[in-house]
Design a protein around this nucleic acid. Structure first.
Lengths: 134, 134, 134, 134
DNA sequence: GTGGTCTAGACCACG
DNA sequence: GTGGTCTAGACCACT
């Protein structure tokens, strides 16, 4: 389920954070649910427990997960809301990226096509999920 | 013209690279033109000359600028083409970003609006530039 | 009557101790009185009996409660005196806190007001208690 | 200047944080000023550099200090304001403490006396500081 | 020189 | 079993 790209320039602990956040936003891991323990995660990813600890405690600071010593880490009840707001706060970065691509001669319709295809994919997946729940 | 954000997490030498690349793509600095010398740049930005040297030599490696010993650094004649291709190679990252935003509940029309407004701005600026050149 | 804050950083067994001590100081539980058995307490709080055991044996060590084998746990006859002395020993911490607040620009009159309001509240409650006992 | 109490129950990294915050509030370390490097601090306190790192990065997260990689850590320009607000947010804890002491039979005038003596001390020290600056 | 990341391995407190 | 803290020592990127 989780995986690390050792060649990536983004730190391992940040990769863990990003993956967890994505799973929570995709509701693959639900609010209130327990996430893998530090030791489990460090075994699965073959990284040092301290590295997982760093990732988890940063998410704790952000209010995404909560540690219950002796029991484990749990997703906060308002994790999705926090994550969604964080993305919205970063829309400025998206504007910069689009501007750069426009400068580089990428056309508006190219961008539209990419966006359309992604939203199509997501709608399809949502449908499957809905069918499974029936 | 150039400026450094000391609080930013991106290294100074990378900030210099990014700004130069943007100026070249925007044709604020034209192909064949000479860019500020390492000395000038380090004085303007109040950074260590070594830092500017690192930025310039990376751009040299990429084929964006060329050092002409005894004269200075000049923008390569195919700098724009190289930069545009580099952006195109990074479209994958754009897909990921859009996917994340979709997960976070940002609507397709919101993204469309942002893109539209940026392309509008650029068209307006191009027109002004054209008028000035007449 | 008792309750546990699972999200708190203070250990569960310490929360139990604190609550019992507060109840004894407030004379909600009187000296000589029997307190809930380990079993009862663990059921009411939905915590592991071992946790309650740890809390009780620490209070036992402090001389606040005594185990009477086969009967249960009882509040010692000098529990209040012991607890009051313990608080007095901690006045040094109070001094530090006040000092910190003074550094942070909290005025003397603000502190006075807080103290006044608390002593008012307690006098009011004492009166009610007295009336009820009549 | 800095010191660690190895016997204390509060973690070493938290002791470092607390001391730095106190120095900043007392203006012994001023806003914008550089604080001891991780290596310096770890040598002075005889603790592992990682422990200092943890303290510093928590303060960074709080917005008290800012890391400038390759240069060091610096006190943020609004550090005092942040710290003062944090203390104010914790007044609730102060209320609880006063309540506990009231229960334990500590009189209002005892508390008043403590507060008075602390404010006297601080006024005296401020005067000395003022005289030194003349 | 600075901070940033990571590993390996240890001990403790809690449940 | 869980998380929390700490040490020792390493390598990297940046200035």
């Amino acid at each position: 389920m989780f995986s690390i790209d050792a060649m990536s320039r983004t730190p391992v602990y940040e990769q863990i954070e990003n993956q967890l956040e994505k799973f929570i936003l995709s509701e693959i891991i639900r609010e209130g649910e327990q996430i893998p323990s530090i030791r489990e995660m460090s075994l699965e990813l073959l990284v040092n427990p301290n590295t997982v600890t760093k990732a988890y405690s940063e998410l704790d600071t952000k209010g995404i997960i909560k540690s219950v010593p002796g029991k484990g880490y749990f997703v906060c009840s308002d994790a999705c809301a926090i994550l969604k707001n964080a993305v919205r706060d970063n829309l400025e970065k998206f504007r910069c990226d689009v501007h750069d691509m426009a400068l580089a001669g990428i056309t508006k319709s190219e961008l539209y096509d990419i966006i359309d295809s992604i939203f199509e994919d997501m709608k399809a997946k949502d449908k499957v999920k809905g069918d499974n729940l029936q």
